[in-house]
Amino acid sequence: MIRHHPSAELLADYARGTLDPGARLTVACHIHDCVICRSEVALWEGVGGAVLETLDPTPLSEGALEKTLARLGNGTSTSVPQLPAFMRSFAVPSPLAREKIGFRRWVTPSIWFAPIHLGKNAGSYNYLVYARAGTTLAQHTHGGAEYTQVLHGSFRDDTGTFEQGDFACTDENILHAPAVTLDSDCLCLSSSDEPMQLTGRAARIVQSLLGTLY
């Protein structure tokens, strides 16, 4: 059962189309699995349709219809990037499957990171992070807001337990060391405004490894 959801503002901004690509992807993966949030997004999309109809029309240039009619039937082909082999054992929500996932890098024998390439200047740091059952991630904080969607397994930090389908939101005020629960490994999708800042000494070695990723 999903217990942690994106805020009402995030869901409305998702429906309006005003989130940056990373936040958008994380919320998209959440609503893919969450019927409650899907319903909330549907509400604002319905409002979007109604508001669209109330806009005063702006005339198009002459011949716009004819130009469009002449292009009808030229279907565009859709290309979906191939899913990397290391992701094939996971159920990948379709919004994520559309994106390009980079090489994974093991930073300890139990943890790997893989960047998601949302394009240059996407405005955020986006990655998958995997950890084996029982692993604790180095204590860290974030420069800005961080959104995390649990794709598989579950983890725990000071603020609660986050299970598959849950959405976690942290900011620069939260210093945490998420611990993967013992029953299963854990895979999360994360998007943050700023790179993660590790606080311990060993952690800084990890940081230097991570640094080469982003």
Binding site: L52, L55, D56, T58, L60, L65, T68
Partner: peptide, 11 residues
């Protein structure tokens, strides 16, 4: 098209 395209342009 006649109905929606001009509203989409405004959008």
């Amino acid at each position: 098209f006649g109905y929606f395209a001009p509203r989409l342009k405004s959008f």
